[in-house]
Each structure stands twice: as C-alpha cells, then as structure tokens.
C-alpha cells in the first residue's frame, strides 16, 4: 500500500496507546529498568520512556526470544509423546517505540528463518507482530544506519512510523495493513497531515562507508592480517550477537523435568570459542580473529550472497554493549579504506 500521512497530537499518543492495550494485544515498549532501557511489557503509557537512542537489546526477541520451547515431550515405558508447538496460541503483539534501524532488522532475520525452509514459529510470531516505529531525533557516535542503507526516519519494517515535529506533535506514517488496523482502533486521533518537513526533524548520522564497499573489501581481504589486528582485544563473549537485531545463530537443547521436558532453541554466538568445536576436538575456527572475521563476513558477504540481504542495520548496539570497545563502525571504516 502507499504510505498515508497524518498528524497525531502529542496528547493523542497516550490515548492511542490505551486503545491498543484495550484491544487485547500484548504491548511491549521501551521501559527504564534499574540498569538499562529495554522492551518490556508495560502496564500503562506512563511506564514508557522516550529517553533512549536505542534500547540495549534489539526488538528481535518478539519473534526470536532468547529461549524458545520448540515442542514438549513426555517419555513413558512405551515410547515418547510429542506435543507440538501451539502456533495458534501465539498472541498479537504490538512493539511500540521501535527505532527505524531495529525495524529494518526484521528483514534480514526473516530472510534467515525463511531460507528455503520456513521456520514457522518465527514467521508466525513475526506475522502477529505490529511494529510502531519512532524516528530518531538523537544519535550518538555509535550510530551508522546511513552507512548501511538506512536512515533515522526510514519507514522500512515499521507498520506505523511516528516522527516528532517541532511542535511536539507527531507525523504519523501508516505504512502497512497492520498499521491501518492500529489506526482503525482510534481513527479520530489521526488528523490531517502536517505540512512540516520530516527530514528537518531527524537526527544527523554521517555516512562513513557503504555496505557495498564493505562487501567488496571483505571479499578481497579474507586472508588479510586485518582480522588479527582488529580482533586482538576481543575477549570472545557473545554480547554483540545477543544485542544485535539481525544475529540469528542458535543452539538446540533438551531440558528434562522428570519424564517431561521440552526441546528448546537458545541464542548462540559465532564469537564463542566452542561454537564450531567438533566432538573430536578439531575446531574449524580455532582463534578469535577467525571468529571475528566470520561475524563480519556473514553480515557483509555471505548474507548478501546467499539470501540477498545485508546482516547489519547500523544500530551500533554491539559497539555500545561491547565490554572491550570493539567499535564495529570504526573497524568497518578502516576496512572500507583498505
């Protein structure tokens, strides 16, 4: 559908929020917790914060949570009984306050989970998710969305995108049918489109490189020493992958509770030393520089080659969360200049 534009008054936002809550949908929004700001179930609009560049973790949990029960089982003397995943029990969720970079992250994630074989748990969850985006008025030194094809006001991936105008009111762009459905909950709040230019109300994020340049360079410099130099201070934790909106690597495990149990899918990271370790003790990616190279190559070479989408949206979460300041934008900028 073509994007429809409206004005939504500052005072209308809480009303819209309440209408969505009242419709029975689960609403998750950025909430200040004791240490960080992250998406969480919120009881009322007063719990929602708009004081964040991006949340510490991405919005991906809504379709790819850190622990997913794939099915339940019961073991008995006669065999095994499997109770399949209840797809019809997946609730409608509204993600409120998603930044454009985060919203763009669902595309690469979806490409991984639908590559030839449809991961129906992920895709059903995504189908039942409505993304209400909020453009960025602020950026920090870690933001680089514009270098990987995004921008602080991009509508990609959002169903409705709000952009705060100078008056404090919002430009509402209704982008999809799911967005229309939200609008239909309170059509009276969506007023005639404002005349004010959207662009002047967005954060400025300088272009440092292009994703195409990075692809060209990493394909050329697979065997370069640059990976060793860049990975020196990496300590091999999984923080970057776990806060990333597009990282999809996972582990599969069984958890028993007596005769009952479930098979689960949990987040995993290519930066962990054990990730590719064979039972024999052989490890195809035995050192941290190989693992760092895999992380970058996967996002900027393998994904575009194989599933036609880049695996980085420039949110900078990995850089902010990294305990040793592995600044991805800095590393990519250096690679772009090779």
């Amino acid at each position: 559908m073509t994007i429809e534009k409206y004005l939504v008054k500052k005072t209308s936002l809480p009303v819209l929020f309440d209408k969505i809550k009242a419709s029975g949908k689960v609403v998750k929004a950025p909430k200040k917790k004791s240490h960080t700001t992250d998406f969480a179930d919120v009881a009322s609009f007063s719990e929602v914060t708009d004081d964040y560049i991006v949340t510490t973790q991405s919005a991906k949990s809504v379709a790819f949570p850190r622990v997913e029960k794939l099915f339940n089982y019961v073991k008995s003397k006669d065999g095994v009984q499997i109770t399949d995943y209840a797809l019809n029990a997946i609730p409608e969720v509204v993600m409120w306050g998603v930044r454009p970079c985060d919203a763009a992250g669902f595309d690469p994630l979806n490409a991984i989970f639908t590559w030839d074989i449809n991961d129906v748990i992920f895709t059903t969850k995504l189908k039942k998710t409505t993304i209400i985006g909020f453009s960025c008025q602020n950026a920090d030194e870690n933001c680089f969305c514009t270098s990987v094809g995004g921008n602080p006001g991009s509508t990609q991936g959002s169903d409705i995108l709000f952009t705060k105008l100078s008056s404090g009111d919002y430009l509402a762009e209704v982008i999809s049918e799911k967005g229309k459905a939200i609008q239909a909950l309170a059509p009276e709040l969506f007023e005639a489109a404002p005349s004010e230019d959207k662009e002047q109300n967005l954060a400025k994020v300088d272009v440092k490189f292009t994703k195409e340049i990075i692809k060209e360079k990493v394909d050329k410099y697979f065997e370069s020493d640059v990976w060793k130099e860049q990975a020196q201070r990496c300590i091999g934790c999984g923080t970057c992958a776990f806060v990333c909106p597009t990282c999809a690597c996972f582990d599969i495990q069984d958890e028993n509770h007596g005769k009952n149990g479930h098979r689960i899918r949990t987040w995993d990271s290519c930066c962990f030393s054990q990730f590719t370790l064979h039972t024999s003790g052989h490890n195809p990616r035995p050192t941290q520089d190989r693992r760092w190279r895999q992380r970058i190559m996967h996002k900027f070479s393998y994904m575009p080659d194989r599933i036609n989408v880049y695996g980085c949206v420039g949110c900078g979460r990995c850089s902010r969360a990294c305990p040793v300041d592995m600044n991805i934008a800095e590393h990519l900028t250096n690679i772009s200049k090779m």
Partner: peptide, 20 residues
C-alpha cells in the same frame, strides 16, 4: 562433517565461507 545444530542453514555453525 562440520558441527551442526539445525541441519537447514539457520543456526549458523557449519559454513565454510559462504558455503553451508
């Protein structure tokens, strides 16, 4: 025989470069 979890190109373990 690289290490695998899913078997269908999603879990991210078995690739040698772009080849899964």
């Amino acid at each position: 025989e690289n290490r695998m979890k899913c078997g269908f190109g999603k879990c991210g373990r078995c690739n040698c470069g772009p080849v899964y």
